[in-house]
Amino acid sequence: MSTPHATNAASPTTAARWQRYVHGHHWRTQAEEFDGCKLGFWLFLATEVLLFGGIFCGYAIFRVLYPTAWAEGSSALDWKIGAFNTAVLLVSSYTMAMSIYCIQTNKISRARWNLAVTFLLGLAFVILKLALEYTPKWSGYFFVLDPALHHHESMIVEGKTAFFGLFQFVEGYGGKRPGMLFTYPFAVDPQVPVWWAIYYCGTAIHAAHVLIGMTLIARVWHLAGKGVYGPTYYAGVEITGLYWHLVDLIWIFLFPLLYLIH
C-alpha cells in the first residue's frame, strides 16, 4: 500500500530512523499526528492535576480542622532540604526543555547529555527524600553524613546502626508516621498523625511520579541513541518532557504548603 502523504520519508538505506518515520495512516500530516498526541497527553495531565487536587483538598480540610497539628508537623520538616530539592527539580526541568531544543536542532548527542543530567537530578531528588527525610522521620535512623545528625548527638544510641553502618539510630526521633502507625513520643497535638498522613500521601505519590518520569527519560535517552528522534520526529521526548514538567509543577505547590506555610 502506498503512502502518498509520507512527505518526509527519505531513502531507507541512508536516512536516520527519524527521517524514515512515517506517521499513522489515519492522520493527514505528521504535524496533525504530533498535535493529536500532545492533546491526548494534556488530557492525561488534567487527570494528574485532579489526582493531586484531591490531596490538596485533603490538606486544606485538615489544616482548617487541626491548625495546631499542622504547625507542629510543618516545624518538623527542614526547609533547607525542601528548598534544595525544589532547585534540583527546577534545574532538571530546564535540562529537559534543553534536550527538546537540542533534538529540534539535530544536536542529538547534546540532547542525550541533557536527558542524562535530568535523570540524575531526578535520582538525586529521590535519594535526598529517602535518605534525609523519610528514613529518619519514619524509623529514627539518620544517614551518618546527614548534617542534621549533630543536633541529636545526645540521643544517639551507640552501636545501633543499619545498612552497613551507614545509618545511625537516634532515640526519640522516629515514629513520625501516618495515622495508626504513629509512634513518635513527643507529640503535643493529638492530631499530628493526620499531618503525617497527608505529608506521606502527597510526597510519596509525587516521588512515585519522579520515578515514573525517570523511567520515561531513560527510555527516550536509549531511543535517541538509536537515532529514533530528530528535528522532524520527537513526539516521545516532547511527551516525556510534559510529564517531567508536571512533576516539577506539583512540587512547586507541595514545597510551600508543606515546608513554608506554618
Partner: peptide
C-alpha cells in the same frame, strides 16, 4: 529532641 528542631517554623 524537639528543642533544637531543624530551624523549623
Amino acid at each position: 529532641t524537639v528543642g533544637h528542631g531543624h530551624g523549623g517554623h
